[in-house]
Design a protein around this nucleic acid. Structure first.
Lengths: 237, 237
DNA sequence: CTGTTCTGAATGAATGTTCAACAAATGATG
DNA sequence: CATCATTTGTTGAACATTCATTCAGAACAG
């Protein structure tokens, strides 16, 4: 009765990894975590499970085990498995959305710089890693048959697409290009998603660096006046 | 016991739709179909189910019902659910592979013509339709956690990619472009997959036509000497 | 008659959900 | 501050359902 009081092994480690400085002592001990922190913890465990086992093999038990909590806990915080998954997808969507908005804001006023910032943001470690890509793809695979996912699963939503189109239109005007902005924006965003897909598949010849390189090659080809052909010393093995 | 002898409603219709002239009378009646035909029929039903319900909701019962056969039939022809799914994926892979090889062969000797043929082939009705795209995506979503799928799930495999790289290299030489063939080929094939993904998601603004248009825009941007800017009368709404 | 194809009910395993009991925090009261 | 009550969080076992698989036997071909 001394050391086995609480079976919290991995849970506390995860919490510590999440936000070590954020939560004060009062909520970290005892009942361990506030409602929101616990929910986040379960969502992270869900992403882990999705990445490791895929959508169809992700079970409530696996999520609970991954979080170091008991079986019934998920139905307490989220009403059902479906709602847990929706919350997880929503979380990933919010994170992705905040990320590119932040990158866009930091990019200043130059459209060419903004577009480049958006493209680069897609390949940041923070959102472009095996774990999250795998989770995204797991949802994509189910999105067609689940209307609830469909709205959220398309990583690049209407707003994002509109920004791409606007940027393409602006660059067209200032660079005297001939393409149709909508069409070019579609090609560009599709390529970004396709690169994600390849990164997720884990084909050995595609890394985050080569993917970004390909994306930049596209930018150079489509907007040669704004992105001069060769970035300085890009030597390949 | 007169009219309910065989519950074959949709099955015969499906067979007829598949290859009306191919199979002779002897195997169509009586024990209904040869082993291979029956397996194909079950594979088609599997694709139907994957497209309609998604991977995680595809059940043996649904496949059997979709084929108009009894529950135990799948385990007779395929040993297990997993083997059925692998056979289905293999079937789709073979079909896709044969399709682009055929398109490439018909394209003659001009590299620019060949590349255009490959790109166009990707958006043929026969392989690029909601049903099959949804099935592809269902497998993609599970591929990361299943080694067996991984080898087959990447629609564009190593051979396909090599051909793309070679074509890009040839065009580079004859057109005096500056890009790296490997990188450009990656950008191109990633964009094709990304367009598939969008078609599958069913965003209303992306159709097979607009997707092909985007792909051609990419070709014009990347290889301006080979694909002059504007194909004749492309007016958009 | 013999072997192949097919059926459909039975079986057992996996898993999402419920729930009664328990524990910790919070608040009320003296 | 001590004690009790209430709310909130948590557990783990029980339950019900879904589903892949099995199999004994029917239907059929040769």
């Amino acid at each position: 009765m001394l050391e086995t009081i609480r079976p919290m092994k991995t849970a506390e480690a995860r919490e510590a990894r999440l936000e070590p400085a954020r939560k004060n002592e009062s909520e970290k001990r005892g009942r361990k975590a506030s409602k929101e922190v616990r929910q986040l913890q379960l969502i992270e465990a869900t992403i882990d499970s999705l990445a490791k086992r895929g959508y169809s093999e992700t079970t409530m038990a696996d999520v609970a085990d991954g979080a170091g909590l008991s079986r019934g806990i998920v139905n307490f915080h989220f009403e059902s498995k479906e709602k847990l998954l929706i919350a997880t997808l929503q979380h990933m969507y919010d994170e992705y959305s905040a990320h590119w908005r932040n990158a866009l804001q930091k990019a200043g006023d130059d459209p060419a710089h903004q577009l480049h910032a958006l493209v680069s943001a897609d390949f940041d470690r923070s959102i472009c890693n095996k774990r999250k890509l795998a989770a995204w793809c797991a949802f994509w695979g189910e999105a067609k048959s689940r209307p609830t996912y469909q709205a959220l699963s398309s990583a690049r939503d209407a707003v994002y697409q509109t920004i791409f189109i606007d940027l393409c239109a602006t660059l067209k005007q200032s660079g005297g290009y001939a393409y149709e902005p909508q069409v070019m924006a579609l090609a560009l965003s599709a390529m970004l998603e396709g690169l994600w897909l390849r990164l997720m598949m884990g084909t050995e010849d595609t890394t985050r660096e080569t993917a970004l390189q390909a994306a930049n090659e596209f930018l150079s080809a489509a907007f040669p006046r704004h992105y001069p052909s060769k970035p300085p010393g890009a030597a390949e093995p």
